[in-house]
Design a protein around this nucleic acid. Structure first.
Length: 428
RNA sequence: GUGAGUGUAGUGUAGUGGCCAGCACGAGAGUUUGUGGAACUCUUAGCGGGAGUUCGAAUCUCCUCACUCACCCCA
């Protein structure tokens, strides 16, 4: 790189430059249209929340809370945290505003920046964006399926072709504790065959062992008791129903008994959606989510079932980038360029520009430039259809030249008819 | 937090101990008088930083910083 600039974006954080704005815009637009169709209402929550909201909501011994939160102390002595995820914040809002008193279900969506202090790498940043959907007050398996369907539709609308849903059920407070015991007992018996990390995991987060990619642990994993086999009746039938609904809407899914998510609040259904390709493997989860029936109560609200999903905007966009390179990246092309020459013309140009604004005709100016040549060069680069040339002579005569940039044909028209004349020509 | 790799103008690159660190694209100005797209000319701007080895360092060593990638975990 060049001489290192004095100021740079902090590690893992990025400027979203003009050229990538259209992609973000498009993604958010598609999400909004979908959210609107499925009757989700938009909500925005603050970027900072009480630190405790996340430690309690997400879970004290999750990685996110343990080492990834940006937490700071206010003058008053409160601890605030840059939100590392949406769900806890949206749940807080749901409770705080008594939305449980409104007709259920309440469907909410939001999008914006999130912060996690991890080492950045492909598809992972310290400031990143998610689009988040949450449904409150509906316990039925249809909702789980619908959330997954919405997630898939979002990707489909953004032209993803080979997406695959991985799904699992991690039970609820009835069956999970029992299963955990079973698993721990099993793992203890095989402890010597586990990798170093997993031996530690057995103690504080045994489910995570199922996630381990160490070769050493694979055989142990393979023989481990599976959660699916030990679900209570309710969870079992819930899971079966979710799958039946997915079959119904023909969403391709893959059962992954090892899918465990890193956030403590999940119950029953958990899922992750990937692009089914090599790059997809590297980039990781595009959309992840699941049911969290205990969270509202945990955070002080009434016992309320809920289910949601969150989409990683940067990850989605990184797939779209290659595709979009083929398409035209330029924004809507402007059609008219205003070139001027001399002080008098400059003054009149300033006024003329305003008339174009009032008429809502997009136009590019070049008031800072003096030579006509460089102005026309700009007009050429901008690929406009017409250039307006206002020189000393025209300014004095109250006329203006309209140049057709394609044919090079020029007409002189009355200055006060400029906007009118351009509008007429653009209509053709 | 652990490990690996990379670091030359705005961008992409050449240059592995020694001639003013080249090239391309970009950007800006211009090639007689007020007219773009081509050509030509000029300008612009760089060895991430620091220390060391050496007569001499972009090049070797060390430190540091940054970026990238992987582990972990996740969107």
């Amino acid at each position: 790189m060049s001489k290192r600039p004095k100021f740079q974006t902090p590690t893992g954080m990025h400027d979203i430059l003009p050229e990538s704005q259209p992609l973000f815009q498009r993604t958010y637009n598609v999400a909004s249209v979908i959210a609107d169709f499925y009757n989700f209402n938009k909500i925005d929550t603050p970027i900072v929340e009480s630190a405790e909201l996340f430690s309690k909501g997400v879970g004290l011994n999750t990685d996110i809370v343990e080492k990834q939160m940006y937490t700071f102390r206010t003058k008053g002595g409160d601890y605030l945290t840059l939100r590392p995820e949406f769900t806890a914040a949206v749940v807080r809002a749901y409770i705080e505003h008594g939305m449980f008193n409104l007709p259920q279900p309440q469907k909410l969506y939001t999008y914006g920046p999130l912060f996690r202090m991890e080492r950045p790498q492909a598809g992972r940043f310290r400031q990143f964006h998610q689009i988040d959907f949450e449904v409150f007050g509906e316990a039925g398996a249809v909702i789980d399926a619908q959330i997954i369907q919405i997630s898939c539709n979002l990707l489909k609308e953004l032209k993803f072709k080979n997406i695959i849903v991985e799904i699992n059920s991690i039970g609820d407070n009835q069956c999970r504790p029992y299963y955990k015991k079973l698993l721990v007992n099993y793992l203890r018996s095989r402890e010597s065959s586990l990798c170093v990390d997993c031996r530690r995991r057995v103690k504080y987060n045994p489910l995570r062992v199922l996630d381990c990619k160490e070769e050493k642990c694979q055989p142990v994993k393979a023989q481990a008791p599976q959660l699916v086999d030990h679900l209570c009746n309710e969870c079992k039938s819930h899971f079966r129903q979710v799958l039946e609904f997915l079959d119904e809407v023909e969403i391709p899914y893959r059962l992954n008994p090892y899918l465990v998510r890193g956030l403590d609040y999940y119950t029953k259904t958990v899922f992750e959606i990937f692009e089914d390709s090599e790059q997809g493997q590297k980039q990781g989860t595009l959309i992840g989510g699941g049911r969290f029936d205990g969270l509202v109560k945990l955070l002080g609200g009434p016992d309320t079932p809920a289910c949601g999903a969150a989409a990683g905007v940067e990850r989605i966009i990184s797939f779209m980038e290659d595709r979009v390179k083929q398409e035209k990246t330029a924004g809507p092309a402007k059609k008219v360029f205003l070139a001027q020459l001399s002080e008098l013309a400059k003054r009149k140009s300033l006024k003329l520009f305003e008339e174009f604004r009032k008429a809502k005709v997009p136009i590019i100016e070049s008031l800072g430039k003096d030579s006509l040549k460089s102005q026309l060069r700009l007009a050429d680069k901008a690929e406009v259809t017409y250039a307006l040339i206002l020189g000393q002579k025209e300014a004095l005569d109250d006329t203006i030249i309209i140049r057709d940039m394609k044919t090079g044909k020029q007409d002189t028209v009355r200055f006060e008819k400029t906007v009118q004349e351009i509008q007429k020509r653009l209509k053709k």
